[in-house]
Amino acid sequence: MHSIFSGEWERKRRRRRISVFSSLAILIFIVLLFSMNSGITPLGPLEVLKTLFGFGDSNQNLVLFQFRLPRIVIALLVGAALAVSGCVLQGISRNSLADPGILGITTGAGLFVVLYISFFSSIDAASPYLLPVFALFGGLLAAALIYILAYDRQLGLVPMRMILTGIAVAAGLNALMTVLMLRLQPEQFDFVAIWLAGRIYGSTWPYVYSFLPWFIILSIFIYYRWRALDTLTFGEQMAKGLGLRVEKERLLLTFASVALAASAVSVSGGIGFVGLIAPHIARRLIGPNHALVLPASALLGGLLLLFADTLGRTIIQPSEIHAGIVVAVIGAPYFLYLLARSNV
């Protein structure tokens, strides 16, 4: 009877999983090394390793530990958070086009971040530890707007209607942000422009510390619910039949994914498409099981954003292209490709 679980096929599948995860880890490691030794101050691979193990001079220490590492960590964490958030949103809405950026959740978060910062003279005067909290309210506001506007009493949340409403909400919130910009001091104005372009601005350790607890708690909370996510992909009735409290689980998962995306973009700029692309590639590589898709999405998201940020800050040195723009250059065509394939 148990042979179904121990055959040649099962071994093949296990090998595939191991190869997917180890290739992702290796890729991240390579980009990580490259990211650490590229920048305005040249730092060779050997010098990077030497500095990492505590043998660098003070200048090398400063560059690596105070400038590059926090930014690298933020890029990895934000990318992973956006990917997991997108993965959850796609799962609960059974819609492969759902993404915190496209749905306007990150814009809502950004709007509240800007409001928060506009109370202070500049971003540096504002405490980074309150940023995720404000962002959360903004993200929830956007999610609530989408829900109210797109919900149909008879049909529930129709995927296409949800996406279109989300795009409209995002556009509206963006417009609000632009209006707000005009009333700001020059320094704050610069900040909003940077936010909109998706620059990873939280590139010091306090931002890492401010976001890390959110990332850890929400990721564990979501991962604990992988089975609920799996059952939800069978549709509401089937999920209920399998004993899932559909409304409750859906609400909890929506809240967690909104909180994750919102807190992520509160330390980076408004970065889109990561939550769309990463889960999609993860599903292709590893199948539909969320116990594997969630971690694979997280790794892919981190890899994608770190790659985009590294590319953006090295390609036209000493100037830089913001990570959000690099991601959009890759992500927008991918979104159109998915849209074309989803026959609507």
Binding site: F234, G235, L242, G243, L244, R283, G287, P288
Partner: peptide, 22 residues
């Protein structure tokens, strides 16, 4: 509880859909 009921009754709805590749 819906989970307790799920141990007593199973339901196969009309045209159930599975994610690709399952």
């Amino acid at each position: 509880k819906t989970k307790e009921l799920a141990k007593q009754m199973a339901i196969l709805p009309q045209n159930p859909e599975a994610p690709q590749g399952l």
